[in-house]
């Protein structure tokens, strides 16, 4: 170091000499001060989630959808199963909107024709999403179908939670031979394709909401059980569990009172991934014709009905398709956001 950085003579003369006295004890800095404010687990996750715009937007959209669905139990525009054959196959008509396709007009052999006038629908009677081959209001049917999808998804997620958490917790917490046996069983079951189980179940029980829920509940819990077990194994050797043991808490109390709350992050994430797959499965089963049965609406049956006449009555396919895509996309985005928020390092 040839160039002196600062010569001793170069003192800052403005500093008064009185400053060069030892700092007295009363003015001493707090040595052990922790600078950053501490955030609780949920606050921290919430802060991260809020930064994810897509996830927040998805959450708002989902909440709106759920609100609308709950309200539609009492305030549906029409009875979703009410047939009104004279009003069959009407395109959508939304008041004050004058875009072909949404104003009651449909293209018939190359010309836009007002179908509402053709069948003398009163001026103040509008079908926002149009009607199907039996004159049923599509909006009401999409609302009813979405409700079924959400119901099935929530119920499937519920069973997934109950079975998956219990199995995983017991397996991980008990450990030893119990764990070994439970893991072997899991390994064997996981070789069975979900599709096969669901289809066999649906053949055995009458198709409908209940049987789909049971079928999905029976198959969906395996991943949850695995995740919960792995996490429990990690947690059970940690200090706070040891502390609880030394204090003489019962095994059950520790598992439920200490382990379970620490699993909440991964449980929420896993549940959020179960829901869209349950929605997909219901739609899938109904689409191929072994899920919901007519006349009940579900997004799958609506899509099935819609796709057959897609070229001529596109609205019958578009509305349910958009509905299912919106639900799936928002659930997936929210699930991704929650995963990143709760555990930034966690992978699939």
């Amino acid at each position: 170091m040839d160039e002196p950085i600062n010569e001793n003579k170069n003192l800052s003369p403005k500093i008064p000499s009185s400053y060069f006295t030892p700092l007295d004890d009363t003015h001493h800095f707090d040595n052990e001060r922790i600078a950053a404010p501490s955030l609780s687990f949920y606050q921290d996750a919430w802060r991260r989630l809020k930064k994810n715009k897509a996830a927040v937007a998805s959450m708002i959209i989902l909440l709106l959808i759920i609100l609308v669905e709950v309200l539609s139990i009492w305030y549906s525009p029409y009875d979703p199963n009410l047939q009104n054959v004279p009003h069959a196959n009407l395109p959508p008509r939304i008041p004050h909107v004058n875009i072909n396709g949404f104003n009651g007009k449909a293209k018939i052999s190359g010309v836009w024709v007002d179908k509402y006038e053709l069948v003398h629908v009163p001026k103040d009677l509008n079908y926002y999403f149009g009607t199907d081959a039996f004159g049923r209001d599509l909006l009401s049917r999409v609302l009813a179908g979405t409700r079924v999808s959400l119901l099935i998804a929530l119920a499937a997620a519920f069973f997934d939670l109950i079975i998956g958490i219990t199995y995983g917790l017991v397996s991980g917490w008990k450990g030893g031979s119990v764990d070994t046996i439970m893991q072997r069983i899991l390994e064997i079951i996981s070789g069975i394709p979900t599709l096969v189980v669901v289809i066999l179940m649906l053949l055995f029980i009458r198709p409908g909401v209940t049987s789909i829920i049971i079928a999905l509940g029976l198959t969906g819990w395996i991943t949850m059980a695995r995740v919960v077990r792995a996490e429990t194994l990690k947690l059970k050797n940690q200090e706070f569990v040891l502390a609880a043991r030394t204090l003489g808490e019962s095994s059950l109390n520790i598992a439920v009172g200490h382990i379970l709350p620490n699993l909440s992050g991964i449980i929420i994430i896993q549940t959020m991934f179960t829901i869209p797959s349950a929605i997909f499965f219901e739609a899938f089963l109904s689409f191929i014709g072994i899920g919901m049965r007519a006349p009940n609406a579900s997004l799958g049956t609506l899509l099935n009905e819609g796709y057959k006449t897609f070229r001529f009555l596109p609205h019958l396919m578009w509305f349910p398709a958009v509905a299912i895509c919106v639900i799936m996309i928002t659930f997936n985005l929210l699930a991704d956001g929650l995963r990143d928020a709760f555990d930034p390092k966690m992978k699939d």
Partner: peptide, 9 residues
């Protein structure tokens, strides 16, 4: 998110 049957159609 988009079901494959919707894609297919």
């Amino acid at each position: 998110s988009v079901p494959n049957f919707v894609f297919a159609v």
